[in-house]
């Protein structure tokens, strides 16, 4: 598969949120404002790429030679947890306003299935290192795209009249469904 195809497929055709149903908690929780969505999305891209790099190396040079593949889940999540801690410390020091706005959601990247999902999918598909990193970046970009689209719609929705029972999460989920429906149109592109 060419580089371009991996890219298009991960962003549009197999969008991590809208067609694979991963990473839904931040998708619904962090999509109220575009600024927050942008911050969350970029930190997810960064963490996903770093995590894929680390876990790929660990899997290849530590777990496979010692026949400990069954510990994959445990090892991967610990690597991701420490990485997120690192990113958090970095942001706190370097970009305090962003740190303040992301607040509670940064530790939650650890429990964002998007990150662990990508590291596991890469192993299942048996990509080499370069396409793994590319796939990770593209998936993160797809996540950012979905988050930004959702934030745009939700900002408009603030001023609309919504039936009382649908207000809040239900309408957001239904909109996600419609968005996911439109992303289905990309199927068959690659």
């Amino acid at each position: 598969m060419s580089v371009f195809e991996v890219f298009i497929s991960a962003i549009f055709v197999n969008n991590i949120v809208l067609s694979q149903n991963l990473g839904n908690c931040p998708y619904l929780g962090c999509s109220k404002e575009k600024g927050v969505a942008l911050g969350m999305g970029t930190s997810v891209i960064f963490v996903t790429v770093m995590a894929t790099l680390c876990t790929w190396v660990v899997q290849k040079y530590l777990l496979v030679p010692t026949h400990l593949e069954y510990l994959q889940t445990l090892v991967f999540i610990l690597i991701i947890a420490s990485l997120v801690q690192f990113v958090e410390m970095f942001l706190k020091k370097a970009i305090p306003p962003l740190y303040a706005s992301l607040g509670i959601f940064l530790p939650l990247i650890t429990t964002n299935c998007c990150v662990l999902g990508v590291t596991l999918l890469v192993q299942r598909e048996q990509y080499d290192l370069l396409s793994s990193l590319l796939y990770a970046f593209a998936t993160g970009a797809g996540f950012l795209l979905a988050l930004l689209l959702m934030a745009g719609v939700r900002e408009r929705l603030e001023t609309c009249r919504v039936p009382r029972a649908l207000a809040g999460t239900p309408i957001a989920l239904i909109m996600a469904g419609i968005m996911s429906l439109s992303f289905m149109a990309f199927k068959g592109m690659v």
């Binding site: 694979q20 029972a165 999460t169 239900p170 989920l173 239904i174 469904g177 419609i178 429906l181």
Partner: peptide, 13 residues
């Protein structure tokens, strides 16, 4: 995938 979102959203509503 869209069915999942729609179904959960309507149930919540």
């Amino acid at each position: 995938a869209p069915g999942a979102f729609l179904c959960l959203g309507l149930t919540l509503a």
